[in-house]
Computed example of a mutant assay.
Amino acid sequence: MMRQTSKITSKGQITLPIAIRRLLALKEGDRVLFEVDDSGNVRMRPEGREGRFAKYRGVGVGHLKTQQQADEWLKALRGRKE
């Protein structure tokens, strides 16, 4: 686990430590989202980023009901017949 500290300015601003910015691949102008749970724990993450597989979410819903159908669909997608 990485732990870093930052000081709050009189305007309520903080500077994210360089190690955190690099870890999250944040650059100037990026937005971050703060989430606070019921216990008061705070999570911060880049806003609006999706994982690289997010575009495939739900692709099989409806027409791929069995593993065999999913396998056949993947083979066709990859240009294979066997």
Rank of each mutant, 00 (worst) to 15 (best):
Phe53Val: 14
Gly79Cys: 05
Lys65Gln: 12
Ile8Pro: 04
Lys55His: 13
Gly48Phe: 11
Glu28Trp: 08
Leu77Ile: 03
Asn41Met: 12
Asp38Pro: 07
Glu72Val: 12
Gly48Asp: 13
Gly58Thr: 09
Val61Ala: 08
Glu47Leu: 14
Asp30Arg: 04
Lys81His: 13
Ala19Thr: 13
Met2Ser: 06
Arg22Met: 06
Gly12Cys: 02
Gly29Leu: 01
Ser10Thr: 07
Gln69Arg: 10
Gly48Glu: 13
Arg57Val: 10
Gly12Asn: 05
Met1Val: 09
Ala70Asn: 00
Leu74Asp: 07
Val32Arg: 10
Arg57Thr: 11
Leu24Thr: 03
Ser6Asn: 04
Gln4Met: 06
Met1Leu: 06
Gly79Ile: 01
Asp30Ile: 00
Gly12Thr: 02
Met2Trp: 03
Arg43Met: 12
Val59Ala: 09
Ala54Thr: 14
Arg21Ile: 00
Glu82Cys: 07
Ser6Thr: 15
Ile8Asn: 08
Glu82Tyr: 12
Ala54Gly: 13
Leu77Met: 07
Tyr56Leu: 15
Thr66Lys: 10
Leu74Lys: 03
Val59Ile: 15
Pro46Asp: 10
Arg22His: 14
His63Leu: 03
Gly60Met: 01
Val61Thr: 06
Thr66Trp: 12
Val36Gly: 09
Leu16Asp: 02
Gln4Phe: 03
Lys7Pro: 01
Glu82Trp: 12
Val61Gly: 00
Leu74Asn: 04
Ile8Cys: 07
Arg43His: 12
Val32His: 11
Glu28His: 13
Glu28Cys: 05
Ile20Phe: 10
Ser10Ile: 03
Pro46Val: 14
Arg45Asp: 05
Glu72Trp: 05
Lys75Ala: 09
Lys7Cys: 01
Asp71Val: 15
Leu26Gln: 04
Val36Ser: 08
Ala70Val: 11
Arg21Asp: 01
Ser6Pro: 01
Leu77Ala: 10
Val36Pro: 11
Gly29Phe: 06
Arg78Ser: 05
Gly29Val: 04
Asp30Gly: 04
Met44Asp: 08
Ala25Gln: 15
Arg80Ile: 12
Tyr56Ile: 11
Leu24Gln: 03
Val59Tyr: 13
Val32Gly: 11
Leu77Gly: 00
Gly79Val: 01
Ile18Val: 14
Ser39Val: 07
Leu26Cys: 10
Lys65Gly: 06
Arg31Lys: 15
Leu26Ala: 07
Arg57Ser: 10
Pro17Asp: 05
Arg31Cys: 01
Ala70Thr: 12
Thr15Ala: 08
Pro46Phe: 02
Glu35Trp: 15
Phe34Ser: 09
Gln68Thr: 09
Arg80Val: 10
His63Arg: 05
Gly29Arg: 07
Glu82Ile: 12
Gly12Lys: 02
Arg31His: 07
Glu28Ser: 15
Asp71Asn: 08
Arg31Met: 03
Val36Ile: 15
Ser39Ile: 05
Met2Phe: 05
Thr5Asn: 07
Arg52Phe: 04
Arg45Trp: 06
Gly29Ser: 09
Ala25Asp: 15
Arg31Asp: 04
Gln13Ile: 01
Leu64Ile: 10
Ala70Tyr: 07
Gln69Val: 04
Asp38Cys: 11
